[in-house]
Amino acid sequence: MTASGSRRLDPAPAVPSIEFEAVSFAYPDGTVALDGVSLRVEPGELVAIVGQNGSGKSTLVRHLDGLLRPTSGRVLLGDRDIRRAHVAELAGRVGLAFQNPDRQLFAGRASTEVGFGPRNLGLRGAPLEDRVAAALEAVGLSADVASNPYDLGYSRRKLLALASVLAMRTPILVLDEPTTGQDARGVARVRAVVAAAAGEGRTVVAISHDMRFVAECFRRVIVMRAGRVVLDGAPESVFGEAAWPELRATYLEPPLPAVAGARLGLGATPTVSALVAALAAAAGGGR
């Protein structure tokens, strides 16, 4: 451990950009889940993807580690087309935390579960143990290192699943509904994980229906509907009043501070802190 309390870990490898070039994808039953999606995520960006159920969010991110391959179009990590790359190889670059922890937990000990990914990437011995301990610490489960994952409650199992991906120290971190089922403490843990990853310059892409989490933790919001990107911008603009009709057509509600700020004529205030600042400025201006 370092003096500051955080573990000294090997730095994350170089962070590549992500590029979707006119990516379309249809499932075997003919359902078109992605319809010509083109977007670029720069290294170190914090991107939230939102949209109604079935809009193609999960399908989109599963292209990042090769679990799905485009029906047409290309996905590039850096300048590399990942069409022919093995998933096991891409797993070292893109860490994907699935929505349902029960679809991945298998080990009898939390530490074994968290070590599964880095072990698959070839890590052994003390570096592996350091990774496991750091990941468990990051999600607040250090005390559960020897626990059976199935003895933990749902929210802690979800944090454990997140830790198992964090332990891989991938330059790109993808989180599918990370705050679902979490209480305020759990959400705070997830926020801290996102902030720490951002601090290390890693790219974080998260799918979420939690608009407050999205507005407060991410600098870019992508709204999807019917397999297409319909809005793309900073939280201030995506949750701004002008975009509300588009959001509502996607069955999304802007976060409460954004609504309050708009109703009070304070402009774009997607977060509580932005709303407070705008209120303070308005009060100061009125004196």
């Binding site: 580690d65 096991a88 698959n120 891989m168």
Partner: peptide, 8 residues
């Protein structure tokens, strides 16, 4: 998918 995403 979940296990492959962890490098299995």
């Amino acid at each position: 998918d979940a296990q492959r995403a962890r490098g299995m």
